[in-house]
Design a protein around this nucleic acid. Structure first.
Lengths: 117, 117
DNA sequence: TTGAGGTGTCAGCTTTGGCTGACAGGCAGC
DNA sequence: GCTGCCTGTCAGCCAAAGCTGACACCTCAA
């Protein structure tokens, strides 16, 4: 197991990571998890002072970027609880790294509304 | 001479940097400038295949983040040309860095529509 | 004067993102 | 049973981002 995000991600991966971290709420989510360790969604929402649906959406983006990992577990009392924790990562952000990443950007088509029927 | 962005920016600075870089066009802009060196706006727009108004907007965000620097110069023939180049930067992106940055996030009020008259 | 090529900005559209309230289900314990 | 706390997702609203076409200005060269 790697246990961390590679220092030289592809262009799309880097874009997802940067976009995910470029948001006050999401940055604070990562910071909170990095400091206090793993926590479950409802508790985390309370700590951050935001609603659960909102947190849920942000967590989705962070998971999609590979920055956090969620695992649905059974608490001691049998309740289903989803714990989430940060995935270790180390990204070096320099112009050279940007050049390398930009070379592998996949320009996915806008929406191609019902083409190729 | 500073010549570069500090490796430990404030929370707001980091947010602006990440949000700026978390966009395909802007990432490619930085990459293109980092590779080919400085260039002027119209030329850059042609190289990237995007419109000048659009590029102008993206450059504003990149400048606001301190990632690129624009300078309006007089070309040899007297024409005013705006050259833009990348500002050297080196940001270490790790959970620890995020924790440090998140501590200094300035939560500016939404819009406070004419309150505190 | 006209044309080409540079600069910037504005109005207006479409799309995305952010956010909330409400709903539905599962599993304790009272 | 009911209550509480956890899970998820949905519809819908509103603000912000992204993008385009048109406009105005400047300077040089033909």
């Amino acid at each position: 197991m790697t246990g961390g995000t590679a220092p030289h991600p592809t262009g799309d991966e880097l874009l997802r990571i940067l976009a995910a971290l470029g948001n006050p709420h999401r940055l604070r989510i990562v910071a909170t998890l990095a400091e206090g360790g793993r926590d479950y969604v409802s508790s985390l929402a309370r700590r951050l002072g935001i609603g659960r649906p909102l947190l849920h959406m942000h967590l989705q983006r962070l998971e999609a970027a590979g920055l956090v990992t969620g695992s649905l577990e059974q608490a001691a009392d049998g309740k289903a609880v989803k714990y989430v924790e940060v995935t270790p990562f180390a990204i070096g952000l320099t112009p050279e790294a940007v050049v390398r990443a930009a070379a592998t950007i996949t320009q996915e088509e806008k929406h191609m509304k019902e083409s190729a029927k």
